[in-house]
């Protein structure tokens, strides 16, 4: 326990030094990075939750985000409900969707091995993308709200204010999640199942209920993320898709079951991406940051551990 605390402290110190150095070197990149990193963490949290407790890598993660964006768009377009207000209905709609998806599909492959789980969620991802294309075609849509484009001028740089909601929401969701996992009985059961599913079952925890609840909550968070990013994101069939891999990159960096690490990792990657983008002529390479770090972390972990 003490050891993990020490290593956590070390990471935190390194993280803060990193932020300060970037802040002096490229202040604009720091601001953009924190904003974007907040969004990455917010979207990465549900994936980490499902992977850490249910043990399933949901490859349709980003596509459910897209679905959330479209539902938020309908709320805005048909009943002119502001995206930030439709956050509540979106949470419950995706919560319900998570329940349905878990009960009908995921529950059947829990014991089927990783290959089948990956393929199943991959298939789901494809169904959602194609379904969206059938219903809404590929035409991009967007939502306009007056507050989303507000900005503030500091010295010689102008900073978008709305995007600060991303890290704020990420921290809020993280705190609520941690409270849920540590303080409520169901949450404690969920952490136990995440650590050792067989042991949890032996002491009388109904793993099926835990999985169902965790899955639904994770989906609810996806709904919240969708409504938060809607004012600043174009909506098209693939708008959420890249976030699946990016979220997994965060989880791979933070390690399974480390929800706080998602926030640190998300902001680190967001800042790194913003730095690459701020170098003229190299804007296009910023995606390599994520995938490069993802590959590097996975390989490092594989080689550090002696072959088991």
């Amino acid at each position: 326990m003490e050891k993990t605390n020490k290593s956590l402290k070390k990471t935190l110190i390194a993280f803060i030094i990193f932020l300060i150095v970037v802040g002096i070197w490229k202040p604009l990149a720091l601001v953009y990075g924190i904003q974007r990193g907040g969004l990455y963490s917010l979207i990465g949290l549900p994936l980490a939750l499902i992977l850490g407790i249910v043990g399933i890598l949901n490859l349709a993660h980003g596509d459910f985000l897209t679905l959330g964006l479209y539902i938020g768009y309908i709320f805005f377009n048909s009943w002119s409900i502001d995206p930030l207000i439709s956050m509540a209905p979106l949470f419950f709609i995706l919560f319900g969707l998570g329940m349905v998806i878990y009960s009908i599909l995921i529950r059947r492959v829990l014991k089927a091995g990783h290959l089948n789980q990956l393929l199943l969620t991959f298939g789901i991802s494809m169904i959602i993308i194609e379904l969206i294309k059938i219903i809404w075609t590929t035409r991009p849509r967007s939502v306009y709200t007056s507050y989303a484009s507000s900005s503030v001028t500091l010295g010689n740089m102008s900073i978008g204010m709305y995007e600060f909601i991303y890290p704020a929401m990420a921290i809020a969701v993280l705190v609520i999640l941690q409270l849920f996992l540590k303080k409520t009985r169901l949450g404690q059961a969920a952490s136990a199942v995440g650590q050792n599913p067989k042991g949890a079952e032996i002491v009388g925890i109904n793993t099926n209920v835990v999985y169902l609840v965790v899955f639904s909550i994770a989906f609810g968070i996806i709904g919240v993320a969708a409504s938060v990013m809607l004012p600043r994101t174009p909506v098209f069939p693939l708008s959420g898709n890249p976030y699946t891999l990016k979220s997994f990159a965060l989880v791979a960096m933070a390690g399974l079951g480390n929800l706080n690490g998602i926030l640190i990792g998300g902001i680190t990657l967001g800042v790194a991406e913003a730095i690459v983008q701020s170098i003229p002529g190299y804007e296009g390479w910023s995606d390599v940051v994520f995938f490069g770090i993802l590959i590097a972390v996975i390989l490092l972990n594989a080689y550090r551990r002696p072959e088991s």
């Binding site: 169904i127 294309k133 590929t138």
Partner: peptide, 18 residues
């Protein structure tokens, strides 16, 4: 079905796995 005819592949993957 000009849009989204690839949905058949997704449905097939899910059904076959299940």
């Amino acid at each position: 079905m000009p849009y989204g005819h690839l949905i058949i592949y997704g449905i097939m993957i899910v059904l076959i796995i299940l």
